[in-house]
Amino acid sequence: VTTYKLVINGKTLKGETTTKAVDAETSEKAFKQYANDNGVDGVWTYDDATKTFTVTEMV
């Protein structure tokens, strides 16, 4: 189990959250659901070296 981080650069929501998951794909699903639940829709990137997802909304 690995800890993954999500950085949110939204128009109205900014911040970070973490989750523990067995792999990046599992954490990505959880993070995308979290973003969707909070009305964040944007461009996703992933940095495997830091286990960090970033979602950026276009303004």
Rank of each mutant, 00 (worst) to 15 (best):
Y4R: 00
Y34R: 00
T17F: 15
T2C: 14
Y46D: 00
D37A: 11
E16P: 04
D48P: 14
T2K: 10
D37T: 07
E25T: 10
E57F: 06
V55C: 09
A30R: 12
Y34K: 02
K20Y: 12
T54W: 08
F53R: 00
G15D: 09
T26L: 06
Y4M: 00
E57A: 07
G39D: 08
D41A: 11
A49V: 11
T19Y: 15
E57P: 07
A35K: 02
F31T: 01
T18N: 06
D23I: 02
E28D: 04
V43S: 08
W44T: 01
T54A: 04
W44Q: 00
K5P: 03
V1C: 14
E28Y: 15
V43T: 10
I8G: 00
K29S: 07
V22P: 13
N38P: 00
V22I: 12
D47P: 00
D41P: 03
K14V: 10
D37I: 09
T50L: 07
Y34T: 03
M58C: 13
D48H: 10
A21T: 05
T19V: 14
G10I: 13
D47Q: 04
F53P: 00
V59Y: 13
F53Q: 00
N38F: 14
L13V: 12
T19D: 05
M58T: 13
T56H: 07
E25S: 11
A24L: 11
I8H: 02
M58P: 11
A24D: 04
T56D: 09
G39E: 06
L13H: 12
D41S: 13
G42E: 01
K51Y: 09
L13N: 08
K20T: 14
Y4G: 03
L6C: 06
A35G: 02
T17A: 12
K51H: 11
V22H: 12
A24C: 14
A21D: 04
G10M: 14
E28V: 06
A21Q: 08
T18Q: 10
K11W: 11
F31L: 05
V40I: 15
T50P: 00
T50Y: 05
K29I: 11
T26S: 12
M58G: 11
L6V: 03
E16S: 11
V40H: 04
N36Y: 14
D48S: 10
G42T: 02
E25F: 11
F53H: 03
Y4T: 02
T19Q: 09
K11T: 13
L13E: 07
G15F: 15
A24Q: 13
V59R: 08
K5L: 06
G10R: 03
V40C: 05
D41R: 11
K51S: 04
K20C: 14
T56N: 08
D47L: 03
F53E: 00
K14A: 07
G39A: 06
T54N: 04
T56R: 04
V1L: 15
E16Q: 10
V59S: 13
D41N: 13
V7D: 03
K29H: 08
T18L: 09
K14G: 06
A30L: 15
N36T: 13
T12N: 13
Q33Y: 05
D48V: 09
D37M: 12
A21I: 03
V59T: 12
A24R: 15
N38Y: 13
V22T: 12
K51W: 04
D48F: 08
N38E: 07
Y34V: 05
W44C: 02
N38Q: 14
Y4H: 03
E25V: 12
T17C: 15
S27K: 01
T45I: 08
E25H: 11
T17Q: 09
V59C: 14
Y46N: 00
T26A: 13
K32Q: 08
L13M: 13
Y4D: 03
T12K: 09
G39W: 04
K29V: 09
F31W: 02
T18P: 02
E25W: 10
K11E: 09
T17S: 08
T2L: 10
A35N: 03
K51G: 04
L13I: 13
N36V: 14
A35Q: 01
M58S: 12
D41C: 13
D37W: 06
Q33P: 00
S27P: 04
K51Q: 09
F31R: 00
K5N: 05
N9T: 08
V40M: 06
V7T: 05
E28C: 15
K11P: 10
V43Y: 10
D37S: 10
Y4W: 07
M58Y: 14
V7E: 04
N36E: 14
F53V: 00
N38H: 15
T17E: 05
A24V: 13
F31C: 03
T17V: 15
N36A: 15
A30H: 14
T3V: 14
F53M: 01
T50K: 06
N36I: 15
D37L: 11
K14C: 13
D48T: 07
A49L: 11
T56G: 04
T45F: 08
D48A: 13
K20W: 12
N38A: 12
A24I: 12
T56W: 09
S27R: 01
G39V: 03
D41Y: 14
K20I: 14
M58A: 12
D48E: 13
V1A: 10
V40Q: 02
T26Q: 12
D47W: 03
T54M: 08
K51I: 02
K11M: 13
T56I: 08
E25M: 12
D23E: 03
T56K: 04
V43E: 10
T18R: 05
D47S: 05
T19R: 07
A21K: 03
S27D: 01
T3Q: 09
K51T: 03
I8V: 08
E28Q: 11
V7C: 06
T18K: 06
F31A: 01
K14P: 06
V7R: 05
D48G: 06
T56P: 00
A24S: 09
G39Q: 08
A30M: 14
Q33R: 10
E28R: 11
K32R: 15
A24P: 10
V55S: 00
T54G: 02
Q33G: 05
L13G: 09
F53N: 00
E57V: 09
M58L: 13
A30E: 11
T3M: 11
T54E: 05
A24Y: 15
E16H: 09
E28F: 15
D23S: 09
L13F: 15
V7F: 07
T52V: 06
D23K: 04
K32F: 05
